[in-house]
Design a binder for these strands. Sequence first.
DNA 1: CCACTCTGTCACCGAGCGGTGAATAACAAG
DNA 2: CTTGTTATTCACCGCTCGGTGACAGAGTGG
Lengths: 218, 218
Amino acid sequence: MVPANAAVKIPLEMPVVEKRVRNRAATEQAILDAAKRLLAEEGFQNFGINAVARGAGCDKQLIYRYYGGLNGLVEAIGTDLGSWVTDRIPDDTGGMFLLTYGDLMERLSMLFLDALRADPLMRRIVAWEVSENSEQVRRLSEARSKALAGWIERMRGSLVPPKGVDAQAVNAMIFAAIQHIVLAAAVSDQCAGLALKNGKDWEKAATALKRIVRGVYG
Amino acid sequence: MVPANAAVKIPLEMPVVEKRVRNRAATEQAILDAAKRLLAEEGFQNFGINAVARGAGCDKQLIYRYYGGLNGLVEAIGTDLGSWVTDRIPDDTGGMFLLTYGDLMERLSMLFLDALRADPLMRRIVAWEVSENSEQVRRLSEARSKALAGWIERMRGSLVPPKGVDAQAVNAMIFAAIQHIVLAAAVSDQCAGLALKNGKDWEKAATALKRIVRGVYG
DNA sequence: CCACTCTGTCACCGAGCGGTGAATAACAAG
DNA sequence: CTTGTTATTCACCGCTCGGTGACAGAGTGG
């Protein structure tokens, strides 16, 4: 018969520990995933080597080995980001015919608004961009804006903005408005006194946005 | 007899030390000033008890004693902030007659744009607002938005927005655009591909902004 | 078997952080 | 001078951070 106290020293919880296998590729992926998850959920404030290693369940040394430190890891995130636009934003016209530049910008605005609202990682990166000017964030920023510009170019097709309007400047304003309003909503459910909690609030915001676009581009 | 190595401990640079006088009010002010300067110049990232004390040239203990810690200090900054609007933004119409709501919003946009561009502290606070949701930043945020709302109300006078336009939502968008574009410019001299370095660039941005306002409000 | 590489872990370092208890120095009142 | 109050500094704590060198073990080739 087995003694009662033998229970404490048997197999030593072998089954529980999830034996870590030797697999570099998987570990690298785990680190990258942990980094993205951490950045998305906690923001850039507490984003560091120790936190990522903790999140990935491995030693931080591996981050140095495989990515050359935090910088390299951020760069890897940036590379991943290149596919963000193509993943999250539809590349077609959603079955509509975009006859005018106004049609195009209205649709682009709505797509970008929804995509940004749905992606916490992207939001955190945008917030990071306007808060700091380190080498790290500059890399991220560049990757993001490049992907975005490509997407817009692709959607634009042969449509051209009306004469007499500085489309680049106006569009920068529109995208700035979208980014800021989404960021503000994410942290405080409002922006400049405008509530942004439920779907109805966002309807109003979207309508206002469309109103602005149409006011400029007709 | 005095040992030779006693020389190292004599007068101890008395004359150099700039004798600190006992003056609580002055010290409190020094702390508050240091805090604002530090936040404006370095941003919220490295904003902490130690840094503020170092900047004020006093011991951090005094911050606990006089302000009850960082929270209290931030609150004091918020109180100060109440007077920001009245200090930095003219309260009159600049000699113009604001006949329509469009006139009003155009002028408000320009004033707010210039004021924000000129005030690094305010910019840092806005960036902080969209990056974090701590108790501290919520206090600041509240003070800022309250002051801003009061200013707008005061400027508005009896002018009313045109029917059929959700002015609150549209204005939130406009202010969001201004804030984001100024923040982005402050860290990277550009926003969404639009260069924002010299006065000429800002002219274009301002024109685009006015175009948007006029597009909605006529 | 050995020797070697590759993956992963551990222990440690110096520095900075927020926070606290006790000492010290200037002034005021008696 | 003595006593007490108030402004200011100092010394220290525990913790986390980024970073590094040494080590353990699995796999691989001879």
